[in-house]
Nucleic acid binder design. Structure first.
Lengths: 208, 208
DNA sequence: GCCACTATTATTCAAGTGTATAATAACTTC
DNA sequence: GAAGTTATTATACACTTGAATAATAGTGGC
């Protein structure tokens, strides 16, 4: 006799909030199970909703994943780009922030790697990556330009560009290593190595 | 009448050979379609066999993927570890090899990233990664130790370790950047930046 | 040249995939 | 507080997935 279906009760969330919850759940699943383990159903479970809702907020799963990638890039760069204070402090903070939690943790590098591995496959992700990388490197380049000027050794754009490429590479490389095998390094060791390396690269002491 | 099924004719390959073909096909698929696009069927097509054969050579798809990862690590490190000649040449070659094709290409970094993204999920991959990383860094550390001694500035293990961590990070970071967005750099620019950076880090000219 | 062996194919299976659709519960407005 | 709107659920669908099975074609030993 058509027993009325027992539906779950639910909470009707504001659009922006729910979108962000879904993106966050997507990232949780990718970090925990890998890209192929991040299924619509798993993501929905994580977000505490049913699978169908995903398609109410996003045109497709791929689009949701792309937006999730944007969120990762943003979270990785926002803290580093907002350093404040005098030039020396800003440069020091930039380095330290990128090699310390929360930027430097295994979840972040897992997410980053999952997306990087798709850059060749998906042009949308490739473009997002490119923008993020350039924004990051340009921020570092500006930091270096100001720092060198303040230290009485101003450098042109081309020289700053080369420094930025090298230091960006160094920080990125140490970031990956530290995140993947943090137990191979002592506390604060990577930050120390990075600081000393940057001093050597620039030929200037960073300490004030 | 049971018309006898028309079976494909096939070639019976020696075990080692076919295993390697399957692993190579696995890597091709991961690089081209990403980890989730590398299905048993797709891999079989690429290898020119049927899907069932995969399970004849490997206990599971996961095991095959793990072996494929070993192959990637090996191909990334073998060339760098086999540098020959005097200490200076070896150090220069080590750097150049890692920032030049075939080690530095987008396929390699895609594969590397795909596996890195699984390190948190799969302990087997984590162990393979760890071994590969340490072998690579230790090779670099030895190279540096010999190089510094030859330049008349011998350094203890701890100092060499720190140099190795920094230079390894630098090279890795530049490798990733160059592979993902090679068009952002001029020909040979990354090698040049790396060489100059290593000179600055060590405080020694590399040129003989 | 036949026989035993096994690498390989063809087929099937149950579980899981992203997506589409319709019913409904929660909220808004008046 | 009733009506209208829509965010959310429930269900179904067509397809893909990794794996299991049985039949068969290639190969080496005698």
């Amino acid at each position: 006799m058509g027993a009325a279906v027992n539906r779950r009760s639910f909470h009707r969330a504001p659009e922006g909030e729910r979108r962000q919850e879904l993106i966050e759940a997507t990232l949780d699943c990718i970090a925990e199970f890998g890209l192929k383990g991040a299924t619509v159903r798993q993501i929905a479970v994580r977000a505490g909703v049913t699978a169908g809702l995903v398609r109410h907020y996003f045109d497709s799963k791929d689009q949701m994943v792309a937006e999730a990638y944007r969120a990762v890039i943003a979270s990785l760069t926002e803290k580093a780009k907002n350093v404040e204070g005098d030039p020396t402090t800003r440069l020091k903070d930039f380095i330290a922030i990128n090699l310390t939690e929360p930027v430097a943790d295994s979840r972040s590098v897992s997410l980053w790697a999952a997306f990087i591995s798709q850059v060749r496959v998906d042009p949308v992700l490739a473009e997002i990556h490119r923008e993020g990388y350039l924004a990051f490197r340009n921020a570092l380049q500006d930091l270096l330009s100001v720092f060198l000027a303040a230290k009485g050794r101003p450098a042109g754009p081309e020289e700053c560009r080369r420094y930025a490429i090298a230091i960006n590479g160094l920080v990125d490389g140490l970031w990956v290593e530290g995140c993947l095998a943090g137990d191979l390094f002592r506390d604060g060791e990577l930050v120390g190595i990075a600081m000393a390396s940057v001093e050597a690269l620039l030929g200037l002491p960073i300490e004030q």
